[in-house]
Measured scan of single mutants.
Amino acid sequence: CHSECLGNCSQPDDPTKCVACRNFYLDGRCVETCPPPYYHFQDWRCVNFSFCQDLHHKCKNSRRQGCHQYVIHNNKCIPECPSGYTMNSSNLLCTPCLGPCPKVCHLLEGEKTIDSVTSAQELRGCTVINGSLIINIRGGNNLAAELEANLGLIEEISGYLKIRRSYALVSLSFFRKLRLIRGETLEIGNYSFYALDNQNLRQLWDWSKHNLTITQGKLFFHYNPKLCLSEIHKMEEVSGTKGRQERNDIALKTNGDQASCENELLKFSYIRTSFDKILLRWEPYWPPDFRDLLGFMLFYKEAPYQNVTEFDGQDACGSNSWTVVDIDPPLRSNDPKSQNHPGWLMRGLKPWTQYAIFVKTLVTFSDERRTYGAKSDIIYVQTDATNPSVPLDPISVSNSSSQIILKWKPPSDPNGNITHYLVFWERQAEDSELFELDYCLKGLKLPSRTWSPPFESEDSQKHNQSEYEDSAGECCSCPKTDSQILKELEESSFRKTFEDYLHNVVFVPRKT
């Protein structure tokens, strides 16, 4: 048989008469490798580009789960590009990614509803959504962080984005990388972005840091009482949809009607710091009717980097990364020049730590249904340095008659930039024990000054392991946590139920 035959053949030295091919099969003959313009397919066939392209389009058009959109890589027609490569849609070739590779997620039936953290986790790592997304989240724990972890990498949506009755959302900033909504599939009414009845939605994105392009379709905003109209108009300008909307697409009466839409800028007039305090004062603000001013709200939190936005980490279910302080308005003076500047002394802060701070007014709604208010920009203030805590785990070892090696770990709280350490030492008198000992005694162990690591005695271990207080009263049991108490109650309830079950099964009433 021919060298490319495997198993047997019907005619000697003829690659077209093989029972099976050793390498690849091409047009009725066995070959060692697939010549151009053919590609290896499933490690035994040679196919042309049209064959591989037909497989790709067949799966793409069917949208069946589990099928493969075949691509070409290293002269092979394979189910998908290997790690580190992405497909070129024009020629199906796998090309190296520039940075992290995109991950295209194809949605069944063309859309997916995100109504819980669990459903959001199914899209973790996706960068391109081939379909439409509907966000409908009523509640949950730590929602802002969970949504950002699972949806934060999405850069492109081919269909539309719909935010509907998501009472738990305060902001859409968890879509931190969303840059493009194509609108290839539109919501009824030709809408590519749809926001309806979101009672706590206050911000779409921080438009000073976020760009969003909507290729096709219109915007729809109705019944978002805490979303200011200025935020919607800003989205029109940034996304390129200005002029597409009709009169009733953006409701003037049901958007922002319960919001404090600040239209003035508060400026800080005085800032002073110490290692654990920050004193702030800002310019006074009074609405047209000074009785509408209820006070100020001061927001602050630790910020290692200057990239904080107002609604980071917030949701309507209680999660809030900001510390909020309510401040009463100052006494009002008739003389504008003698107006008191409101302020606040922030206490209990960490030394040498940068804080993000902003302040906003708290006002009631005027009778004319106009909203007044003022808010400052987010500023960054760093507390002063102070003395560091003591170095940890000092170790001293003498390696000769004239040297001592000293080692330690950095302090747990540096409280500033540590530039150097101060080492103090003092000579001590020799131990009298060394002169009084009889060095001729056998088995004498000389006193040693070398360091030995501390260890816990058996008594201390027994005390720590004991669940009861000892007789001397030195140790006591740790208080039980809520989960331990709940577990004990469940076990007790189970024992009672099981005992009742045994009584009912074992003891049967005697027939009379």
Rank of each mutant, 00 (worst) to 15 (best):
Q245F: 05
K112N: 02
N150Y: 13
S396L: 15
L279R: 11
T383I: 00
T323I: 03
C261T: 05
R247L: 09
C317T: 03
F290R: 05
N334L: 04
I181H: 00
L172K: 00
T361P: 01
T241L: 14
C317F: 15
P330Q: 11
K242M: 12
L349Q: 01
V381E: 09
H106E: 10
I134F: 10
R179W: 09
L172E: 00
G183P: 02
I188T: 14
H233A: 04
Y305R: 09
V325W: 15
D257P: 03
W344E: 07
K226Y: 09
N200M: 07
R244I: 07
V128R: 15
L294W: 10
C228M: 03
F268V: 07
T215H: 08
K103H: 03
T213G: 11
T383P: 00
V238A: 07
S239F: 03
R347Y: 11
D115I: 02
A149P: 03
T254D: 03
Y160I: 01
N211V: 11
R291N: 12
L172A: 06
A259S: 09
Y285E: 01
N190M: 15
K360D: 02
L172S: 02
D393W: 15
G240S: 03
D276M: 03
I327H: 02
Y194T: 11
T213E: 14
G348F: 05
R138I: 15
S171F: 07
T215I: 14
L280E: 00
R247G: 12
R179Q: 06
A149F: 14
S171Q: 13
L204D: 00
P288L: 08
T127S: 10
I250E: 11
T113W: 12
H222I: 02
G140R: 09
L280G: 00
K407T: 15
V359T: 02
T353H: 11
R247P: 08
Y191T: 10
P351V: 07
D289H: 06
F365P: 15
M297F: 01
I278G: 00
D335S: 15
D326N: 15
P225G: 14
E146V: 04
K103P: 07
A120M: 08
E184L: 10
I357H: 00
P391S: 02
N399D: 15
